[in-house]
Design a protein around this nucleic acid. Structure first.
Lengths: 116, 116
DNA sequence: TTGACATATCATAATGGCATGATATTATGT
DNA sequence: ACATAATATCATGCCATTATGATATGTCAA
């Protein structure tokens, strides 16, 4: 029996994993990195230059994205090239988010997470 | 010109919005609530009972989910019934996450976010 | 090996999100 | 109006995540 198109997802306590997974995209810097890599694989140095942030900061976020499976790395001489692991899936994820965000961008902008 | 199926998503600094949006699902409790509501709209009391958490805790998380547009509320006498705003889209989001998480669940479990 | 370059790791400090418990709000019935 | 039920809001304290700066690791060239 297959999963229904959009319901009945996993059960039990896998939720902790999902939460952690989504937290990978729950950061502006990481999102910028992912979107930047979605265009084209890049070295760490290129990402640092493109986003204008410190090398250690980018490197830390990259290692986070790597752990969660969003990207994978590959040495190329002195450099390390990062690329999005599954561009199609990540692209879909962002596309859906885009539609949902569009509807109430103003609300989201104000919400300071849990309480006000 | 339409958007490509999975690339070229928005530009500039809308990333902050997306990050905030994804952070809505970056919490185990909120994820459980969303999945619970995906089955069927429920009152706050039912959610409290189902998850076995304090009323204020659930209420806070619900207000967060509402701000981000995941759910919407509707009074029904003394109760307030919550439902997933766009079940199909949220369902797709979770379905994609499921596939991606499945690949490296072990990694994700260990990753303590940015640095170790 | 030495030096320069590219990236990763780590400790510390600052920040932000979360749970809790108490209180406020809204609705219903008598 | 009063009492009770259901939900929302708020203040406080705690914990997790993040940025920073320094240092370590790895790679290449001479």
């Amino acid at each position: 029996m297959q999963l229904a198109t959009s319901e009945e997802h996993r059960g039990r306590a896998a939720d902790a994993l999902y939460a952690r997974f989504f937290s990978g995209l729950a950061d502006e810097t990481r999102l910028r990195i992912v979107r930047y890599l979605l265009q084209h694989p890049r070295t760490v140095g290129e990402i640092v230059a493109a986003l204008g942030m410190s090398q250690s900061r980018i490197s830390n976020q990259l290692s986070c994205l790597k752990w969660c499976g969003y990207v994978n790395a590959q040495r190329r001489g002195r450099n390390v090239v990062y690329e999005v692991a599954d561009p199609a899936a990540i692209g879909d994820l962002l596309a859906i988010a885009q539609r949902l965000v569009a509807a109430n961008a103003s609300h989201i902008a104000v919400c300071t997470q849990v309480a006000l």
